[in-house]
Amino acid sequence: MLENFWFNVEYGVNHVLDINAYDHVLFLICLTVPYVFKDWKRIVLLVSMFTLGHTVSLILAAYSIVNANAQLVEFLIPITILIVAVYNVFTAGKGAQKERIGILFFTTLFFGLIHGLGFAREFRILLGDSDNKLVLLLEFALGIELAQVIIVFMVLFLGYLGQTIFRFSKRDWVMVISAVVIGLVIPMLLNSDFLK
């Protein structure tokens, strides 16, 4: 029982930290980069909204309530990353992440739903013929959340180093990191099977 629990949690962690599927990491980078350690409550809420979104998608997919076009979802995921990165570039240094918290939470939840649909096919394979779909889902979601905490901590830590040791202004840090993410996402969009 405990062995299955750890397998499912580790599967969730590995799914997020998979070097070949870095879209989840890019989204979390964009979500986190405008903040610093003292904003931890807001970050926890945002990341939890994202987790809630893709957990709801996985529940809907696991019980065959939703069956999305995989190519469309794989196209929409980089779009969500691009939207957040561009938003960061245009609002860097303006405090917009603190003012529009309702919109940020709603958008993050919605984008989580889209990212969750990207997990759906792989999650169905993990489920197999299991009768404990909900338990498996919660264990998998816990693994995803743990991986997200690792990524968020790394982004905040690198931001701290960049802004204190290397003296980047917060605005420049957000703009540079977001621009790098945009540069990584555009090829993902152009190579999408949905556009072919």
Rank of each mutant, 00 (worst) to 15 (best):
L2K: 10
W6V: 08
W6K: 05
W6L: 14
F7V: 01
V9L: 10
V9D: 04
E10Y: 03
Y11W: 01
Y11V: 00
V13Y: 01
N14A: 03
H15S: 01
V16P: 01
I19E: 00
I19C: 00
I19W: 08
N20M: 12
V25C: 03
V25E: 00
L26D: 02
L26E: 02
F27H: 09
I29N: 06
C30G: 09
L31W: 06
L31H: 06
L31R: 07
T32I: 14
V33M: 12
V33I: 15
V33F: 10
P34C: 11
Y35S: 13
Y35F: 15
Y35Q: 08
K38E: 13
D39W: 09
W40E: 02
W40D: 01
I43Y: 03
L45A: 13
L45R: 11
F50I: 09
F50C: 06
T51N: 05
L52W: 07
H54S: 04
L60A: 14
L60H: 02
A61V: 07
A61E: 11
A62E: 12
Y63I: 03
Y63S: 06
S64F: 13
I65V: 15
N69T: 02
A70G: 02
A70S: 12
Q71L: 14
Q71M: 13
L72A: 13
V73M: 10
E74C: 05
E74T: 07
F75K: 00
F75I: 07
I77S: 01
P78Q: 02
V84K: 14
V84I: 15
V86D: 05
V89N: 08
F90H: 08
F90R: 09
A92N: 11
A92Y: 09
G93M: 10
G95Q: 11
G95L: 09
A96S: 10
A96Y: 11
Q97A: 12
Q97C: 04
K98P: 01
K98R: 11
R100M: 02
I101W: 05
G102P: 00
I103S: 06
L104A: 08
T108V: 13
F110H: 00
F111V: 03
G112T: 07
H115L: 03
H115K: 04
G118V: 07
G118C: 07
F119A: 10
R121T: 13
E122C: 00
L126N: 04
L127C: 06
L127V: 06
G128L: 07
D129E: 15
S130V: 10
S130L: 12
S130W: 11
N132E: 11
V135A: 13
E139Y: 03
F140Q: 01
L142Q: 00
G143V: 05
G143M: 06
I144Y: 05
I144K: 05
I144P: 01
L146H: 00
L146W: 03
A147D: 05
A147I: 07
Q148F: 09
F157H: 11
G159K: 06
Y160M: 15
G162R: 05
Q163I: 15
Q163K: 13
F166P: 04
R167E: 14
F168C: 04
F168M: 10
K170S: 15
R171M: 14
I177A: 10
S178E: 04
S178M: 05
A179L: 14
V180M: 12
V181G: 07
I182T: 04
G183I: 07
I186K: 00
M188A: 08
L189P: 02
L190I: 14
L190S: 10
N191G: 15
N191T: 09
D193N: 13
L195F: 04
